[in-house]
């Protein structure tokens, strides 16, 4: 009996091929998932992503049709094209999922996110924050002598840019909703 000749670093010791099967580029996709508004449906969706090792960049969920008992989950995820296809197929397998739309590939869509920014500062910093907020069309929804809370709506990139600008001006807290998205034009 002689042992198998297995090169160092090979996968021979594992029952699985540990190398990625696809080396394609990673893409960012926005998925709209229409689900039955049942207890545990969000856990099913999140559990699927966690259990199979998929990424979630952002996730928003709310009831969109009270009478029809439907909620809409918008998920921004990343992966190779094969992984994205697999994510959609796996989502489609969940009994409570009615429909999965990939807004990234199904034509043009609009994406919006809402952010709340608490910025504290005095003097010139405070004025500068207010001026930039105006440029970004952010609203002041709370104000004290030492702080503002700005409300800003836009694409995730716009909100990122606003956060970058506020950071040196006394940014204290951020709350973001994650992406909500719809396809453009009539259904």
């Amino acid at each position: 009996m002689s042992p198998l000749k297995i090169k160092k670093g090979s996968t021979g010791h594992s029952a699985y091929d540990l190398r990625p099967s696809y080396s394609d580029t990673v893409e960012r996709h926005t998925l709209a998932v229409l689900v039955e508004n049942e207890p545990g449906v969000l856990a099913r969706v999140i559990g699927l992503f966690a259990g199979r090792g998929y990424n979630i960049e952002s996730l928003t969920v709310a009831e969109v049709d009270h009478q029809g008992h439907r909620s809409r989950i918008t998920i921004v995820t990343t992966g190779t094209p094969q992984i994205i296809i697999q994510i959609k197929a796996q989502l489609g397998r969940i009994i409570d999922v009615h429909k999965v739309n990939d807004l990234t590939v199904e034509g043009p869509s609009v994406e919006r996110e809402l952010g709340l920014f608490k910025v504290a500062g005095k003097g010139e910093q405070r004025v500068e924050a207010l001026r930039l907020a105006d440029i970004f069309r952010a609203n002041v929804v709370d104000s004290t002598l030492e702080s503002f809370v700005f409300e800003i709506t836009g694409t995730p990139e716009k909100i990122d840019a606003f956060a970058d600008l506020m950071r040196p001006l006394g940014l204290q807290e951020v709350a973001r909703t994650g992406v909500a998205a719809l396809s453009r034009g009539a259904v």
Binding site: A15, D17, S21, I85, Q86, A89, G92, R93
Partner: peptide, 30 residues
């Protein structure tokens, strides 16, 4: 399944493959 394919990149390298399955997530998974 991995017990069937062995090493994926050397699995039946010269064939066209048809896959009949009732589960969409099985098709093109591996």
């Amino acid at each position: 399944d991995d017990r069937i394919t062995g090493r994926i990149d050397a699995f039946s390298p010269r064939s066209k493959k048809a896959h009949i399955d009732i589960d969409a997530s099985s098709i093109n998974k591996v």
